[in-house]
Amino acid sequence: MITFTPEQEQFRKAVARFVDAEVVPAAEAIDERAEFPTKLFKRIGELGYLGLRYPEAYGGAGADMVTYCLFAEELARGSLSVAAAAAMQSLMGTHFVYKHGSEDLRRRYLVPALRGDLIATFALTEPNAGSDVAAITHAAERRGDRYVLRGTKTWVTSAPVADLLTVAAKTSTSGA
């Protein structure tokens, strides 16, 4: 049994109004042109939807996961393309910066990403490994004070337009 709080229902209605007014009319044209929905993406960031799952200190809303699901469900009703881009941005694309990044990195990347100014994505899947993390072959080789990444990723959401990529790579070939 799914029950939503009054606040969640109100939030769903607000998102639905936005989707009906701005996403639905543009959805077909976006898919026809096969373009990244830059304007809508930016608009979603302005409305604060990209930061639903993050603390207010970084421009987020501190919402729970059910609320986020309501947002994603309503957005996907209008356009799957927009919903997928927004989901990548607000979940995996920025999660690791928030979770493991320093305060400087968060300020530099997370805050503008939640505003929609930066497009972030997560690169894990490989042609020969799929999304099996243990089987990836993307190599990270240390050279002095830097790393050299060598390998190929595929099925990277928003890759052609992404400003920021979180890439999974192996730092050694032994062990697991």
Partner: peptide
């Protein structure tokens, strides 16, 4: 609608397209 937290495979990808149009790269 598609579940948000776990979008189906057919939904899980966004427009991996150039801003300048399709099939560019």
């Amino acid at each position: 609608s598609c579940p948000a937290a776990a979008p189906p495979r057919s939904c899980a990808s966004s427009s991996s397209r150039s801003r300048l149009g399709p099939r560019r790269g």
